[in-house]
């Protein structure tokens, strides 16, 4: 419900937004604009597309683009399915369900650095993953798999698994909140009127939950396109290139290379464009989000 009691311009409560706007003007809009300008100018400062031309001719960038797309699509689908299943399960009240909820949220608390150590120690040839697989008899201790030697598609899939472990709780939490607000009678009406569990889920729960699902998926997609830290922590730079990994590489490793900054800025603009395009495409595909109406 929106209230608008005073209409006078100077009495408008929107004046309270001025500090935020100033903050964003100073610490977001200004750097963003300078990044965009840098990406469209050459070393001499003249307008040019040379940065983009140079980047698109690089093999690594094309691979990074492909990897980023694969990762985003793959992780979005897997994480949505798992998070929704988990949220449905946790939404049922059972004994110790609160404890189980806490357990599922634990990975959310892991700092990226800890996630890096956790999986690095797990994935190398003598790591805990192989130790565990040997302990339960699924692997021969004499011939363990070296997960870190994975490259290309296998590496991307491995990173999707690791990423899913880390971010699943934050996707799940949004869907769970939606389910908790979901009027159980909608679902029950489906059962009573002849729908089985799957039909109820497909025809009733999903459509009504759509606004929540869209929220969760957009936030996830924005983060997924910007994946890089886990890739670098586990494989190091240059092994599995992602777009933002390329930015970090230019910023962090080859800082003083001739085109390091230009490249970093240009890739940033490309990433932002990709995010913007994919989010609006997703909104278009998932349809009119207003129709979901009230859920209570």
């Amino acid at each position: 419900m929106h209230v608008s009691r005073r209409t006078g311009f100077f009495k408008s409560p929107t004046w309270f937004l001025v500090p935020v706007v100033i903050y964003y003007a100073a610490f977001w809009i200004r750097p963003t604009i300078s990044v965009i300008i840098e990406s469209f100018t050459d070393k001499a400062g003249a307008f040019s597309f040379s940065n983009y031309v140079r980047l698109f001719s690089q093999e690594a960038i094309r691979t990074a683009f492909l990897n980023t797309v694969l990762f985003t699509v793959g992780s979005a689908i897997i994480q949505f399915v798992l998070a929704f299943a988990l949220a449905l399960w946790l939404n049922k009240k059972f004994r110790f369900s609160n404890l189980v909820l806490f357990i599922t949220l634990i990975p959310m608390a892991f700092p990226p650095a800890a996630v890096g150590i956790l999986w690095k120690t797990g994935l190398y040839r003598f790591g805990w993953i192989n130790s565990f697989l040997c302990a339960i008899g699924l692997m021969n201790p004499a011939n363990p798999v070296d997960w870190m030697s994975f490259r290309n598609l296998n590496a991307v899939m491995l990173l999707i698994v690791v990423d899913t472990w880390t971010v699943l709780p934050s996707v799940m939490i949004i869907l769970l909140a939606g389910l908790q607000n979901f009027n159980k009678e909608f679902e029950e009406a489906g059962w009573v009127f002849g729908a089985n569990k799957f039909q109820t889920l497909k025809d009733i729960v999903f459509p009504i939950m759509k606004p929540t699902i869209i929220t969760a998926m957009i936030l996830r997609m924005i983060a997924a396109v910007q994946v890089w830290l886990i890739a670098v922590m586990i494989f190091g730079y240059n092994v599995v290139p992602f777009l933002v990994e390329r930015i970090a590489y230019n910023v962090d490793v080859i800082t003083f290379a001739k085109y390091a900054r230009k490249d970093a800025y240009t890739i940033s603009v490309i990433v932002a464009a990709i995010v913007l395009i994919s989010v609006s495409m997703y909104l278009r595909v998932s349809g009119d989000k207003q129709k979901g109406g009230e859920t209570t």
Binding site: Y24, W28, I218, L219, I222, V251, A272
Partner: peptide
Amino acid sequence: LVVRMFPAVALSLPL
């Protein structure tokens, strides 16, 4: 929402 779309790493440099 758009604020979150721009890679934070890149903004650190001008910042």
